[in-house]
Deep mutational scan, measured.
Amino acid sequence: MQRVNMIMAESPGLITICLLGYLLSAECTVFLDHENANKILNRPKRYNSGKLEEFVQGNLERECMEEKCSFEEAREVFENTERTTEFWKQYVDGDQCESNPCLNGGSCKDDINSYECWCPFGFEGKNCELDVTCNIKNGRCEQFCKNSADNKVVCSCTEGYRLAENQKSCEPAVPFPCGRVSVSQTSKLTRAETVFPDVDYVNSTEAETILDNITQSTQSFNDFTRVVGGEDAKPGQFPWQVVLNGKVDAFCGGSIVNEKWIVTAAHCVETGVKITVVAGEHNIEETEHTEQKRNVIRIIPHHNYNAAINKYNHDIALLELDEPLVLNSYVTPICIADKEYTNIFLKFGSGYVSGWGRVFHKGRSALVLQYLRVPLVDRATCLRSTKFTIYNNMFCAGFHEGGRDSCQGDSGGPHVTEVEGTSFLTGIISWGEECAMKGKYGIYTKVSRYVNWIKEKTKLT
């Protein structure tokens, strides 16, 4: 034993070699072989497995989906700052455009905790909710729209109204504003409101030439003092309507412009014939205590009207009353817009006519005020429907199939267009061939041609 100890002390290297040989010859039971080890760690190889990531292109799944990435790591994937920024906006807080917040056709661009709407022409605001041009839906104005110097929408209202708090709607500024039905039992019968379409306001006024200088022999019209197929109006439903009495009662109609003036057809009036105007009328054979009678003290036909040349060209006249009318729910003026808007309103496509005229061709006159909704007829169809001249200051309205029309005794009465609950004068009943005849239409004086003249002559002093 002493000898062994001496050998170990003198030859430590020998001992180490012996131990190493023993270990190498022993069977290893701690580690699995290569094949079995792979069965336990069965993990798919990654895209760049075996390579240094710093030297390969980034992978979106590896960089940002398996674990949260930084902007720089995302930049490695896209290799483009702009594309990385677009991805980053949604990656950080989701897609803010998912709810489609942009209105009126706006395009949404996502941002971090926010979004941006790219608005089409005519709109602005956070969600493109603000109209900035009158060309689109009248700028959301209830009545009139004008573009300011910086191309912003400025709404306005006709006389007797003021802008509401929203700067879009119009509200009454006087007790009985024009064009409004205020009798409670008839307010439910107000005709369907007309909503502004998209309009090209630059070209809204037709490029028409008034044929002022045409000389033409007097034409022989049949029954051209021209509501057939209409309905009984309720008291106060058309408070701007008046009836004219002269040699015979209810020979023509008219509309209240203001307390002192009536507008009617020029062919209705004769110099030297006494005319009485009755406002607030409903049943011409009954006294309903809503009527107001006034005498006409002055007749002003349009300066281009000449019955000797043509009885229905420039067929418009103004009547001055001896005493002002007292405005109330049964006696209310009709609204008159400017030339541009009167023309736009007419193009809405349908209007209402009213009167006490004959209820059928050569038949009896109506006792109760009649009204009828009539569609506008395109000019080409209008011209083809008659052998008589249709001037540019006239328009056609009615039904091709016949059966409904204005008729004798309705002449001078109103053709009105309702705009968001307020009625505007767009025409004056003038003439036609018979009444409600198939293929024939009622012919009306186009008020847009005469609004400046009306307003100039009827100013209240």
Rank of each mutant, 00 (worst) to 15 (best):
V248G: 14
V331P: 01
G106Y: 00
I15K: 07
T445Y: 04
K188A: 12
S406P: 13
V153S: 13
T461N: 15
V195S: 15
A337Q: 01
C335I: 00
T225G: 13
G355Q: 12
V56R: 06
Y91I: 11
C170I: 01
G280F: 02
K152A: 13
K234C: 03
V227L: 11
K446Y: 01
K109R: 14
I390E: 05
R294I: 02
F176A: 04
R404E: 06
V183C: 05
S114K: 04
G236T: 05
W431R: 09
N100D: 10
G357E: 12
K260C: 03
S423K: 10
G179Y: 01
E418G: 04
G230H: 11
R140S: 04
V4M: 13
G409R: 11
R384W: 04
G421C: 02
N42L: 08
F87C: 04
D315S: 03
S107W: 04
G179W: 01
S350Y: 08
K126A: 11
Q143D: 00
E142A: 06
K260E: 03
I336K: 00
H314C: 03
H302M: 02
N127L: 05
G230N: 12
T218Q: 08
I454A: 01
F121D: 03
S406L: 14
G351V: 01
V199K: 13
N59C: 05
F360S: 14
G357C: 11
R140Q: 14
E288C: 04
K455E: 04
Q143T: 02
L376M: 12
T186P: 11
I334T: 02
G357W: 07
H415S: 01
C97Q: 00
D93M: 08
A279Q: 00
F424L: 01
W240P: 00
Y391R: 14
N245V: 09
L376W: 05
V92K: 15
L460R: 12
L321C: 02
T85P: 09
F144M: 04
Y312M: 10
M65C: 04
R191W: 08
L369V: 07
V331F: 01
G413P: 01
K438R: 12
V447A: 08
G58R: 09
T16C: 09
E72H: 10
G355L: 07
P375C: 04
L24V: 09
I262Q: 00
Q143M: 07
N313Q: 13
A26T: 12
D223Y: 06
T458V: 05
N328K: 01
L372Y: 10
G230Q: 08
P120M: 05
A380P: 10
G253V: 14
E285R: 12
I17W: 11
S148F: 07
F176W: 08
H267S: 11
